[in-house]
């Protein structure tokens, strides 16, 4: 260990004087779902402006917002990407470190799709209720909570193929999981009447919701903590598996995956922007207002990101799979006026 200490001390001596340079590039970190969009924009930004190409890193929404909230200054990031809205606790943490002015930018929507191997069993139509019946940890039967008895998809819904349930869903550190729980499991719980049955049994509403969103742990449902590539690999090796993917990922792998409808609606940019397709979520990035005017190109980058030619219909982001935001003009105005979020909202 004496050796390590020597090295650290040496490193300190070598590094400290050289690290007094000012930063001239925009630094972005956060959600791995937003990463491909941000890197497409960064690339086009570098080509079209005299500023250097912004530095884009991934790490997840929560990790990105945590770094974002570390404080104000050149050694903190300027923009945090998030696949969910910032939480009140995070706003407080930010404010405690002096980051009290945050501009929230919604870049568009991302659909969450349910897909299986293209030559696999006939998973073509799902209802939220099917997923609740297939994945719930416990469900009420005759006034009592019992462990989920369903072992095949046909048990959950007779119209589905009679194959063993093998679902690959995003792990709890992903923003996608939250959307999946709320818009699929909870919805299915309500649709099947299980929610009402639980409350009848004397559960409070919160407890009932938690029970609705609890996922079985007997191995039929697998949490994927990596990204969609890992889910795809699982589906590849398991012909009967069903995976949860982002629309953009699915659209880039349409030759190996087949998508199912949800609630009778096929996922597409049109059905998601019209709100027909039930499982979608907004994507955001957050700008540190204190850095505007300090970091060169930050405002230009933010404006470029939501410009019609980038984030609008037919732009490169839509081509990649982003569902354009119908209210893009408002977002553009928001950046133009540097409108911050209301403190505490």
């Amino acid at each position: 260990m004496t050796k390590t200490l020597t090295v650290s001390a040496l490193a300190l001596a070598v590094a400290s004087p050289a690290f007094a340079q000012s930063r001239d590039n925009v630094q972005v970190a956060g959600s791995s779902t937003v990463l491909p969009y941000a890197s497409i924009v960064a690339e086009a930004f570098g080509e079209n402006f005299d500023f250097p190409t912004p530095v884009v890193e991934s790490g997840g929404s929560s990790a990105g917002l945590k770094r974002f909230c570390e404080g104000v200054g050149e050694n903190t990031i300027d923009i945090a990407n998030a696949s969910r809205a910032i939480r009140p606790a995070e706003i407080e943490a930010c404010a405690a470190n002096g980051v009290d002015e945050i501009i929230e930018v919604r870049i568009g929507y991302d659909g969450i799709v349910f897909a299986s191997q293209i030559d696999g069993p006939d998973f073509t139509a799902f209802e939220p209720a099917d997923w609740f019946r297939a994945l719930a940890a416990e469900m009420p039967v005759d006034g009592e909570m019992v462990t989920n008895p369903n072992t095949t998809w046909a048990d959950a819904n007779a119209d589905l193929p009679a194959v063993e349930i093998a679902a690959f869903i995003p792990g709890t550190k992903h923003g996608t999981r939250e959307v999946f729980e709320e818009k699929v499991l909870l919805q299915g719980c309500e649709d099947t009447g299980a929610m009402a049955a639980m409350m009848k049994m004397g559960m409070s509403e919160d407890d009932a919701e938690d029970a609705c969103m609890a996922v079985r742990t007997d191995g039929r449902s697998v949490d994927i903590d990596g990204d969609y590539t890992e889910t795809l690999a699982r589906i590849d090796s398991n012909p009967e598996g069903v995976g949860v993917f982002g629309l953009a990922f699915y659209e880039n792998n349409t030759d190996t995956l087949k998508v199912a409808t949800m609630g009778g609606v096929a996922p597409s940019t049109e059905t998601i922007s019209s709100g027909e397709y039930p499982v979608s979520r907004p994507l955001f990035f957050y700008i540190k207002k204190a850095h505007l005017g300090v970091i060169p190109g930050l405002k230009d980058f933010a404006q470029f990101f939501v410009a019609d030619e980038i984030a609008g219909p037919g732009g490169p982001l839509a081509d990649y799979g982003l569902v354009p935001d119908p209210e893009l003009a408002e977002t553009q105005a928001k950046i133009e006026n540097e409108e911050t979020m209301n403190a505490g909202s």
Binding site: A18, S32, A42, G46, V55
Partner: peptide
């Protein structure tokens, strides 16, 4: 230390930035 998940699109400008730029 953040070297994975970084999109390496910028060549370093000079030797110092080669060491210190992401």
């Amino acid at each position: 230390i953040g070297m994975v998940g970084y999109i390496a699109t910028n060549y370093p400008d000079n030797i110092a930035s080669g060491f210190f730029d992401p």
